[in-house]
């Protein structure tokens, strides 16, 4: 990619875009915001030029770029909006199950972004705390702590419904 090769950019996209999109979704909640975050990462990376040669682990680097972009956006906007998590609209069997799913998505949207990030990446995507720590650059203990606090908060929110 440092040679200005568009094929390399396409290959990088194919390899990392899906995981980045899910990470963006875990942070931002909405698909539209996650798309913007992913696009922002690739556009910025393409403009890096020779600095690309100094990047050792592209995957982890891009996840951190995405995370930084999101947190900077939140800082500029002030308080992050509570957006229900965008999930795949699977054909729910019953109305109760559908309502249950919607309640869970809304509750997830009400969590602080950093807690939602860990909960979605761990429980929904099945990543380990170690993997999440590698992606975010945050220590594994902090990740575990955020998960526990987020889960407690989620249980509280759902328990009051």
């Amino acid at each position: 990619m440092a040679d200005g090769d568009r094929e390399a950019l396409a290959e990088l996209y194919d390899r990392h875009a899906a995981a980045l999109f899910r990470h963006g979704l875990a942070l931002a909640g909405s698909s539209a915001d996650a798309e913007d975050l992913v696009q922002g990462v690739f556009v910025k990376l393409a403009g890096f030029g020779v600095r690309l040669l100094g990047i050792r682990c592209a995957g982890a680097y891009m996840h951190r770029m995405l995370r930084t972009a999101f947190l900077e956006g939140v800082r500029h906007r002030g308080v992050a909006a509570e957006v229900p998590l965008d999930t795949l609209d699977v054909a729910a069997g019953t109305g109760a199950e559908e309502a249950d799913r919607l309640a869970l998505e809304t509750a997830l949207g009400g969590l602080p972004a950093e807690q939602r990030e860990v909960i979605v990446l761990h429980s929904v995507q099945g990543l380990t705390f170690r993997e999440i720590a590698g992606m975010t650059g945050v220590s594994m203990w902090t990740i575990a702590s955020r998960y526990r606090l987020g889960l407690e908060r989620l249980r509280g929110m759902l328990g009051t419904r």
Binding site: M1, A2, D3, G4, D5, R6, L9, A10, Y13, A17, E35, V38, Q39, F42, V43, L45, A46, G47, F48, G49, V50, L52, L53
Partner: peptide, 13 residues
């Protein structure tokens, strides 16, 4: 969208 928006930097020397 990404491929259309991304402009690659010149070749590294």
């Amino acid at each position: 969208r990404v491929m259309a928006a991304a402009s690659l930097a010149p070749r590294a020397s």
